[in-house]
Protein backbone atom coordinates (compact mmCIF):
# COMPACT_ATOMS: atom_id res chain seq x y z
CA UNK A 1 0.00 0.00 0.00
CA UNK A 2 2.44 2.71 -1.03
CA UNK A 3 -0.37 5.26 -1.49
CA UNK A 4 -1.63 4.78 2.04
CA UNK A 5 1.92 5.00 3.41
CA UNK A 6 2.35 8.34 1.69
CA UNK A 7 -1.02 9.63 2.86
CA UNK A 8 -0.58 8.88 6.55
CA UNK A 9 1.84 11.76 7.31
CA UNK A 10 -0.40 14.14 5.37
CA UNK A 11 -3.37 13.04 7.47
CA UNK A 12 -1.38 13.54 10.68
CA UNK A 13 -0.39 17.09 9.72
CA UNK A 14 -3.97 17.86 8.63
CA UNK A 15 -5.31 16.70 12.02
CA UNK A 16 -2.85 18.94 13.86
CA UNK A 17 -3.93 21.93 11.78
CA UNK A 18 -7.58 21.05 12.41
CA UNK A 19 -7.10 20.96 16.20
CA UNK A 20 -5.15 24.22 15.98
CA UNK A 21 -7.96 25.83 14.01
CA UNK A 22 -10.64 24.49 16.39
CA UNK A 23 -8.72 25.73 19.43
CA UNK A 24 -8.86 29.28 18.10
CA UNK A 25 -12.41 28.99 16.84
CA UNK A 26 -13.80 27.67 20.13
CA UNK A 27 -11.94 30.29 22.11
CA UNK A 28 -9.63 27.83 23.92
CA UNK A 29 -6.62 29.94 23.08
CA UNK A 30 -5.75 33.59 22.93
CA UNK A 31 -5.33 34.87 19.35
CA UNK A 32 -2.17 36.73 20.37
CA UNK A 33 -0.49 33.72 22.02
CA UNK A 34 -1.56 31.29 19.30
CA UNK A 35 -2.69 33.03 16.10
CA UNK A 36 -5.14 31.07 13.98
CA UNK A 37 -3.91 29.14 10.91
CA UNK A 38 -5.56 31.75 8.71
CA UNK A 39 -3.53 34.58 10.31
CA UNK A 40 -0.29 32.62 9.89
CA UNK A 41 -1.07 31.91 6.25
CA UNK A 42 -1.82 35.60 5.75
CA UNK A 43 1.50 36.52 7.35
CA UNK A 44 3.27 33.98 5.12
CA UNK A 45 1.60 35.41 2.03
CA UNK A 46 2.62 38.95 2.98
CA UNK A 47 6.20 37.87 3.69
CA UNK A 48 6.34 36.00 0.41
CA UNK A 49 4.86 38.92 -1.51
CA UNK A 50 7.35 41.42 -0.06
CA UNK A 51 10.26 39.09 -0.89
CA UNK A 52 11.36 39.07 2.75
CA UNK A 53 10.60 35.38 3.21
CA UNK A 54 12.69 34.30 0.22
CA UNK A 55 15.53 36.59 1.24
CA UNK A 56 15.67 35.28 4.84
CA UNK A 57 15.17 31.67 3.81
CA UNK A 58 17.90 31.85 1.16
CA UNK A 59 20.31 33.43 3.66
CA UNK A 60 19.67 30.60 6.12
CA UNK A 61 19.82 27.85 3.48
CA UNK A 62 23.11 29.18 2.18
CA UNK A 63 24.58 29.24 5.69
CA UNK A 64 23.39 25.71 6.46
CA UNK A 65 24.74 24.28 3.22
CA UNK A 66 28.10 25.96 3.62
CA UNK A 67 28.44 25.04 7.29
CA UNK A 68 27.28 21.47 6.72
CA UNK A 69 29.72 21.03 3.83
CA UNK A 70 32.56 22.51 5.85
CA UNK A 71 31.92 20.32 8.86
CA UNK A 72 31.62 17.17 6.71
CA UNK A 73 34.87 18.09 4.96
CA UNK A 74 36.53 18.32 8.38
CA UNK A 75 34.86 15.35 10.07
CA UNK A 76 35.39 12.69 7.39
CA UNK A 77 39.18 12.93 7.00
CA UNK A 78 39.64 13.37 10.75
CA UNK A 79 37.54 10.28 11.50
CA UNK A 80 39.55 8.25 8.98
CA UNK A 81 42.84 9.53 10.39
CA UNK A 82 41.88 8.79 13.99
CA UNK A 83 40.54 5.36 13.12
CA UNK A 84 43.75 4.47 11.29
CA UNK A 85 46.32 5.89 13.70
CA UNK A 86 46.58 5.07 17.38
CA UNK A 87 48.98 7.97 18.15
CA UNK A 88 46.57 10.43 16.52
CA UNK A 89 43.77 8.95 18.61
CA UNK A 90 45.75 9.32 21.83
CA UNK A 91 46.52 12.98 21.16
CA UNK A 92 43.31 14.26 19.56
CA UNK A 93 40.54 12.18 21.13
CA UNK A 94 40.56 13.75 24.62
CA UNK A 95 40.47 17.24 23.11
CA UNK A 96 37.53 16.40 20.87
CA UNK A 97 35.76 14.66 23.74
CA UNK A 98 36.07 17.89 25.74
CA UNK A 99 34.74 20.08 22.94
CA UNK A 100 31.88 17.65 22.38
CA UNK A 101 30.59 18.16 25.91
CA UNK A 102 30.17 21.91 25.42
CA UNK A 103 26.88 22.94 23.78
CA UNK A 104 27.68 25.09 20.71
CA UNK A 105 25.27 27.78 21.84
CA UNK A 106 27.35 28.22 25.01
CA UNK A 107 30.26 29.14 22.78
CA UNK A 108 28.39 31.91 20.98
CA UNK A 109 29.73 34.71 23.22
CA UNK A 110 33.30 33.58 22.53
CA UNK A 111 32.64 33.08 18.85
CA UNK A 112 31.21 36.60 18.61
CA UNK A 113 34.37 37.98 20.23
CA UNK A 114 36.65 35.93 17.99
CA UNK A 115 34.77 35.94 14.71
CA UNK A 116 32.46 38.96 14.99
CA UNK A 117 28.77 38.79 14.24
CA UNK A 118 29.17 38.12 10.52
CA UNK A 119 29.06 34.94 8.46
CA UNK A 120 32.19 33.40 10.02
CA UNK A 121 30.53 33.24 13.42
CA UNK A 122 27.42 31.54 12.00
CA UNK A 123 29.51 29.01 10.11
CA UNK A 124 31.48 28.41 13.30
CA UNK A 125 28.31 27.56 15.22
CA UNK A 126 27.05 25.24 12.51
CA UNK A 127 30.37 23.43 12.27
CA UNK A 128 30.54 22.97 16.04
CA UNK A 129 26.99 21.63 16.11
CA UNK A 130 27.16 19.34 13.10
CA UNK A 131 30.73 18.04 13.27
CA UNK A 132 30.21 15.31 15.84
CA UNK A 133 27.35 13.29 14.36
CA UNK A 134 29.34 12.83 11.13
CA UNK A 135 32.61 12.28 12.95
CA UNK A 136 31.25 9.78 15.46
CA UNK A 137 29.04 8.07 12.88
CA UNK A 138 32.00 7.37 10.62
CA UNK A 139 34.21 6.35 13.56
CA UNK A 140 31.53 3.91 14.71
CA UNK A 141 31.07 2.61 11.17
CA UNK A 142 34.79 2.01 10.75
CA UNK A 143 35.09 0.34 14.15
CA UNK A 144 32.17 -1.93 13.26
CA UNK A 145 33.58 -3.23 9.98
CA UNK A 146 33.26 -7.02 9.74
CA UNK A 147 36.84 -8.32 10.20
CA UNK A 148 35.92 -11.28 7.98
CA UNK A 149 35.52 -8.93 5.02
CA UNK A 150 38.96 -7.46 5.75
CA UNK A 151 40.36 -11.00 5.58
CA UNK A 152 38.93 -11.31 2.08
CA UNK A 153 40.99 -8.24 1.17
CA UNK A 154 44.11 -9.60 2.85
CA UNK A 155 43.89 -12.91 1.00
CA UNK A 156 43.47 -10.98 -2.23
CA UNK A 157 46.73 -9.21 -1.43
CA UNK A 158 45.20 -5.74 -1.04
CA UNK A 159 47.36 -2.98 0.41
CA UNK A 160 46.36 -1.21 3.64
CA UNK A 161 45.20 1.73 1.60
CA UNK A 162 43.09 -0.46 -0.70
CA UNK A 163 41.55 -2.24 2.28
CA UNK A 164 40.59 1.18 3.65
CA UNK A 165 39.07 2.53 0.44
CA UNK A 166 37.58 -0.67 -0.96
CA UNK A 167 36.34 -2.43 2.20
CA UNK A 168 36.39 -0.28 5.33
CA UNK A 169 34.88 2.94 4.00
CA UNK A 170 32.06 1.33 1.99
CA UNK A 171 31.24 -0.80 5.05
CA UNK A 172 31.05 2.30 7.22
CA UNK A 173 28.80 4.13 4.78
CA UNK A 174 25.41 3.31 6.38
CA UNK A 175 26.51 4.78 9.71
CA UNK A 176 28.10 7.76 7.98
CA UNK A 177 24.78 8.40 6.25
CA UNK A 178 22.94 8.35 9.58
CA UNK A 179 25.53 10.80 10.90
CA UNK A 180 25.03 13.08 7.90
CA UNK A 181 21.28 13.15 8.39
CA UNK A 182 21.54 13.93 12.11
CA UNK A 183 24.17 16.51 11.34
CA UNK A 184 22.03 18.31 8.77
CA UNK A 185 19.23 18.57 11.34
CA UNK A 186 21.66 19.90 13.95
CA UNK A 187 22.92 22.46 11.44
CA UNK A 188 19.44 23.91 11.10
CA UNK A 189 18.85 24.09 14.82
CA UNK A 190 22.21 25.65 15.58
CA UNK A 191 21.87 28.19 12.79
CA UNK A 192 18.49 29.42 13.93
CA UNK A 193 19.93 29.70 17.44
CA UNK A 194 22.83 31.76 16.15
CA UNK A 195 20.54 33.97 14.08
CA UNK A 196 18.31 34.58 17.12
CA UNK A 197 21.25 35.95 19.08
CA UNK A 198 23.17 38.10 16.64
CA UNK A 199 22.14 38.57 13.06
CA UNK A 200 20.59 40.94 10.55
CA UNK A 201 19.18 38.35 8.18
CA UNK A 202 17.98 34.75 8.10
CA UNK A 203 14.92 32.93 9.42
CA UNK A 204 16.11 33.11 13.02
CA UNK A 205 16.45 36.88 12.68
CA UNK A 206 13.02 37.09 11.10
CA UNK A 207 11.53 35.32 14.14
CA UNK A 208 13.30 37.41 16.77
CA UNK A 209 12.48 40.62 14.88
CA UNK A 210 8.80 39.61 14.79
CA UNK A 211 8.87 38.87 18.50
CA UNK A 212 10.13 42.39 19.17
CA UNK A 213 7.23 43.72 17.11
CA UNK A 214 4.77 41.43 18.93
CA UNK A 215 3.94 39.69 15.62
CA UNK A 216 3.35 36.11 16.82
CA UNK A 217 1.83 35.28 13.43
CA UNK A 218 5.20 35.90 11.80
CA UNK A 219 6.96 33.97 14.57
CA UNK A 220 4.77 30.95 13.83
CA UNK A 221 5.20 31.43 10.09
CA UNK A 222 8.98 31.38 10.60
CA UNK A 223 8.79 28.20 12.69
CA UNK A 224 6.66 26.58 10.00
CA UNK A 225 9.13 27.48 7.27
CA UNK A 226 12.09 26.21 9.30
CA UNK A 227 10.34 22.89 9.92
CA UNK A 228 9.37 22.48 6.29
CA UNK A 229 12.85 23.34 5.04
CA UNK A 230 14.32 20.86 7.50
CA UNK A 231 12.00 18.10 6.28
CA UNK A 232 12.72 18.93 2.66
CA UNK A 233 16.48 18.95 3.15
CA UNK A 234 16.36 15.56 4.87
CA UNK A 235 14.21 14.18 2.07
CA UNK A 236 16.62 15.57 -0.51
CA UNK A 237 19.63 14.12 1.30
CA UNK A 238 17.96 10.71 1.48
CA UNK A 239 17.12 10.82 -2.22
CA UNK A 240 20.67 11.80 -3.04
CA UNK A 241 22.07 8.96 -0.95
CA UNK A 242 19.62 6.42 -2.36
CA UNK A 243 20.63 7.50 -5.85
CA UNK A 244 24.38 7.38 -5.19
CA UNK A 245 24.36 4.14 -3.15
CA UNK A 246 21.49 1.97 -4.37
CA UNK A 247 22.58 -0.99 -2.25
CA UNK A 248 21.62 0.90 0.91
CA UNK A 249 17.98 0.99 -0.19
CA UNK A 250 18.17 -2.44 -1.83
CA UNK A 251 19.16 -3.77 1.58
CA UNK A 252 16.01 -2.31 3.05
CA UNK A 253 13.83 -3.72 0.30
CA UNK A 254 15.25 -7.19 0.79
CA UNK A 255 14.65 -6.95 4.53
CA UNK A 256 11.06 -5.91 3.90
CA UNK A 257 10.35 -8.70 1.41
Amino acid sequence: MPARRALTPVAVFASVVLVWWLAGRLGWTNAYLLPAPKAVVAALTDLAASGALVKHALTSIQRVLLGFALSTALAVPLAVLLSASRPARTVIDPLLEFVRQVPPLALIPLLILWLGIGEAQKLGIIVLASFFPVFLGLRGGIAGVDPRLIEVGRVAGLSRRDILTRIVLPSALPELVVGLRISLGYSWRALVGAELIASSAGLGYMIIDAENLARTDIVLAGILVIGILGLLSDLLLRRLIGHAFPWLSADLEAARA
Binding site: R148, E151, V152, P170, S171, W247, L248, D251
Partner: peptide
Protein backbone atom coordinates in the same frame (compact mmCIF):
# COMPACT_ATOMS: atom_id res chain seq x y z
CA UNK B 1 30.63 -18.15 4.89
CA UNK B 2 30.30 -16.31 1.60
CA UNK B 3 31.85 -13.05 2.88
CA UNK B 4 30.59 -10.97 -0.03
CA UNK B 5 30.81 -7.18 0.00
CA UNK B 6 27.16 -6.15 0.56
CA UNK B 7 27.57 -3.00 -1.56
CA UNK B 8 28.76 -4.85 -4.67
Amino acid sequence: EARLMPWL
